[in-house]
Simulated assay, not measured.
Amino acid sequence: MLKIEMLSRIVVLFAAVSCLNACATVAYQQSQPVIEASDVSKIQKGVTTRPEVEAIFGRPAQTVVGDKGERHSFYSAYQASVSGKAHASAYIPFVGPLVGTGEGSSTHRQQTLQVIYTAAGVVKDFEFSETGSNSKTQVKGLTQSKTETTPMK
């Protein structure tokens, strides 16, 4: 009988330790079609036409027509992802917020392409830009947190 009682205590202890080592994870991701640099390199000033650009990138998000018939078309893309996890210690009643730990990361990337067409519909000029960053955060209780952000390459 003593062996069964000892064995059941070991099982309960193992279960408790497993629960404390567990963690909760959260993830979120948002994405729009990426503007590929290899596609942008296909645009040639004075050569490429509006239907050719739209065949590659689709319809622009916004178009503005100027006084002399010039057309400014804007394309944009945004990708973002966020994930994080809180360790089991964060869920201990009353003291969890004080002693709990967690970590998270996020990535974002913004791309824009502006194309200017002549009145005849031929590319006059264009500009492509891309920015983004990666962030990592560590939290220890209510009093300690550390965030590190680096630009995307």
Results as ranks from 00 to 15, higher is better:
residue 137 T to W: 07
residue 136 K to M: 04
residue 27 A to P: 07
residue 116 I to E: 05
residue 5 E to P: 08
residue 38 S to R: 12
residue 46 G to S: 08
residue 55 A to N: 06
residue 56 I to C: 02
residue 64 V to L: 12
residue 24 A to V: 09
residue 23 C to D: 09
residue 13 L to F: 06
residue 121 G to T: 01
residue 58 G to W: 03
residue 115 V to A: 02
residue 106 S to Y: 06
residue 102 G to W: 05
residue 87 H to S: 08
residue 139 V to L: 15
residue 36 E to A: 12
residue 1 M to Y: 03
residue 131 T to K: 09
residue 82 V to I: 15
residue 7 L to S: 10
residue 85 K to P: 01
residue 27 A to M: 09
residue 22 A to K: 11
residue 12 V to S: 03
residue 10 I to K: 09
residue 11 V to L: 15
residue 65 V to Q: 13
residue 144 Q to V: 15
residue 35 I to W: 07
residue 73 S to I: 12
residue 143 T to A: 13
residue 128 F to N: 01
residue 46 G to N: 06
residue 78 Y to I: 13
residue 15 A to S: 03
residue 87 H to P: 05
residue 25 T to F: 06
residue 17 V to F: 00
residue 75 Y to C: 13
residue 109 R to C: 01
residue 140 K to E: 14
residue 77 A to M: 07
residue 134 N to G: 06
residue 44 Q to L: 13
residue 126 F to Q: 02
residue 99 V to P: 09
residue 124 K to G: 01
residue 64 V to Q: 11
residue 63 T to Y: 08
residue 131 T to S: 05
residue 101 T to D: 03
residue 22 A to F: 12
residue 127 E to I: 09
residue 57 F to H: 01
residue 134 N to P: 06
residue 146 K to F: 01
residue 140 K to I: 15
residue 60 P to A: 04
residue 99 V to L: 15
residue 60 P to E: 00
residue 97 P to M: 10
residue 124 K to T: 01
residue 82 V to N: 06
residue 48 T to C: 06
residue 90 A to S: 01
residue 102 G to D: 02
residue 151 P to S: 11
residue 42 K to N: 10
residue 138 Q to H: 13
residue 81 S to C: 01
residue 109 R to P: 01
residue 94 F to S: 10
residue 10 I to D: 02
residue 58 G to V: 01
residue 48 T to M: 08
residue 42 K to R: 14
residue 64 V to E: 12
residue 91 Y to A: 02
residue 77 A to P: 07
residue 76 S to H: 11
residue 61 A to D: 09
residue 5 E to L: 12
residue 7 L to K: 12
residue 148 E to Y: 07
residue 151 P to W: 10
residue 139 V to K: 15
residue 111 Q to T: 00
residue 3 K to Y: 08
residue 28 Y to S: 10
residue 67 D to S: 09
residue 19 C to K: 08
residue 60 P to I: 01
residue 8 S to V: 10
residue 118 T to M: 08
residue 76 S to D: 12
residue 70 E to L: 00
residue 142 L to Y: 12
residue 38 S to W: 04
residue 152 M to E: 08
residue 132 G to R: 14
residue 123 V to E: 00
residue 24 A to G: 03
residue 20 L to I: 13
residue 130 E to M: 08
residue 55 A to L: 05
